[in-house]
Simulated assay, not measured.
Amino acid sequence: MNLPKYTFECKPEARPQNHHPDSPTELEPYIADSGLIEAVNLAIFLQRPLLIEGEAGCGKTRLAVAIAYELGLPFYRWDIRSTTKVQEGLYEYDAILRLHDVQTQNLTPSINPQTGEPRKPQDPKDYRELGSLGKAFQSHECPAVLLIDEIDKADVDFPNDLLSILEKPWKFFIRETGEEIKANPDKLPIIIITSNKEKGSLPTPFLRRCLYHYVRFPNQPEELQKIVNAHYAQKQKIEKITIPKADLVQEAIVKFLNIRQDKSLFKLPGTSEFLDWLAALDHFTLTPYPVERLKEENTIPYRDLIFKLRQDWTNSKYASS
């Protein structure tokens, strides 16, 4: 079997010009180490889902966007809730709307948003809409990138139910329309699954089917500096915003990493909070926040951007400034 060669290098500048219409149009720069890049390419090579774990704010969700953007592939996202069933990711069928259109077709027929044409009650396909997983299966010209976000939020049966779809023969049946939706075996979806382990470990059969990678939070100053450089390089292209002065960035990194080392915090801030905080330090007021004041122990300016729980925000250890 001649499989297409797709290689993720974490180099968004390699994005092909003839990218798919459903490929992401904008990308916040993403930094991935060699281990994570290798895990992605192993998942592509073996055609297996890649299960990503790591603490909140370490960039798990954005990885799938980065892959789809760089490779120019269609991107579909499936956000999992506590009530989510596998059926929702495949398709939804609106029988009530079809009944309504039967009764009112001579008055004001409803419009199918996919075609822009009036729906035809005699055609059941006009009343089914593919979910994110169904769209990924229907991408036959190129593999789609499918993000299944926070799988551990679903009930305990969900991962194993999903297995029956993510294995050969990679197809499902829509009984209301008589359609069989089958993925192209040479262009199977690139599936990224994220987990925060909110409900404990995932089932063993599901884990056996997936590749696994733990994303470590960038807890070294030089790692956060790379993220800052990449973030502001993109900002300069789009918004003409310059990178904050080096001394402010360095002190903000030191302060941020010290905060993250505080074992009394209930929720540690992530990279998104850090970048928002650095932006506020640099240009929320007419002049950047004074570096010397930032060096003061236990003084955290703009705490609203760092702490997201009341227990942390009211922590007497940190003074408002």
Rank of each mutant, 00 (worst) to 15 (best):
E92T: 14
S139W: 10
A14L: 15
L146N: 01
L265R: 05
K60I: 03
Q311K: 12
L211V: 00
L224P: 06
L248M: 10
A39R: 06
D161Y: 12
P185I: 05
K153R: 10
V86I: 05
I191D: 04
I52H: 00
Y214N: 13
K240V: 03
F217L: 08
S264C: 03
A136L: 00
K135V: 04
H100R: 15
G59C: 06
N41L: 01
P49M: 05
K255T: 08
I31W: 05
A39S: 04
N298V: 08
I243G: 02
P109E: 04
T7C: 08
D312T: 07
S320E: 13
L3A: 07
R293G: 06
N229M: 07
K237G: 09
P159G: 03
E223K: 14
R310I: 11
E179I: 09
T314Q: 14
V156N: 08
I300K: 06
H19Q: 08
K245C: 11
T299Y: 14
P205N: 06
Y232T: 02
R81Y: 14
T285L: 15
F137M: 05
I37L: 10
L73N: 01
Y93E: 01
N184Y: 05
N229W: 05
L281F: 13
G134F: 06
R98F: 09
L278P: 05
V65C: 04
E55P: 11
N219A: 14
K171L: 09
D152T: 06
H100L: 13
E26H: 08
L130P: 03
K295P: 01
F8L: 00
A319M: 12
I165N: 01
E167N: 10
A39W: 04
I80F: 07
K171H: 09
K226G: 00
A56S: 14
Y6F: 12
A279L: 02
P113T: 10
T204L: 15
I148V: 11
Y302N: 00
K240F: 11
T299A: 12
I31M: 01
F307P: 08
F158R: 08
L278A: 02
G116R: 06
F173P: 01
A230R: 04
Y232G: 01
A154Y: 05
G72E: 03
V249R: 14
F217D: 05
N2Y: 09
T83W: 09
N112W: 11
Y289L: 01
P203H: 10
D282W: 11
E38M: 14
N106L: 11
F173E: 13
A246N: 10
R128F: 15
P301V: 10
M1T: 11
Y302G: 02
I227E: 04
Q103F: 11
K267Q: 13
V156Y: 08
S321I: 15
P218C: 13
E26G: 13
Y91Q: 05
A230S: 03
K11Q: 11
T177L: 12
I165P: 01
E13A: 15
D247Y: 09
K182V: 06
K226C: 04
I31V: 15
Q225W: 11
A56E: 07
